[in-house]
């Protein structure tokens, strides 16, 4: 086991504990926690058995095993960033709708209660 793989192993343990904590307090769904557990376990697995990436790279036509791991990691990151972008955009739009509609309603109520004067 190389030093880097020990570091990765410790980091993954930390990340996994975060996932489990988040799942426990229901701030992420069961499906999401499962997704992240699989992601982190795959990373541990590849760190413990790096020769698997060599086989994978031979299949995919990429020179070195570690390159395949990086390649897959970057693709995954892109996907996560995209999902985050969509989520934030959606939240932003909902916040705007909420602001617009609540301001109109509050104003109508204010006007209604001012009328008798």
């Amino acid at each position: 086991m190389t030093i880097i793989s020990i570091f990765v192993f410790i980091f993954v343990l930390f990340a996994l504990s975060r996932v489990i904590l988040r799942a426990k307090d229901h701030s992420i769904s069961f499906r999401e926690s499962l997704f992240w557990i699989v992601v982190w376990l795959t990373i541990v697995f590849l760190t413990l058995f790096p020769q698997i990436t060599d086989k994978l790279s031979a299949i995919m036509g990429i020179g070195r095993g570690i390159d395949t791991a990086f390649f897959l990691a970057i693709i995954l990151l892109f996907y996560i960033v995209f999902r985050l972008y969509v989520k934030i955009d959606e939240l932003d739009k909902r916040l705007t709708e909420l602001t617009i509609n609540s301001s109109k309603e509050i104003h109508k109520l204010k006007r209604h209660f001012k009328k008798p004067e």
């Binding site: 916040l95 602001t99 617009i100 609540s102 301001s103």
Partner: peptide
């Protein structure tokens, strides 16, 4: 003058929408 207040800042586009929708609806 009549003033409608956004609870938080949402930008000029949103403010215009509020005003235009409010006038149209009322």
């Amino acid at each position: 003058v009549e003033v409608i207040t956004h609870l938080i800042n949402r930008g000029q586009g949103a403010a215009l929408r509020t005003g235009m929708e409010y006038i149209l609806e009322n």
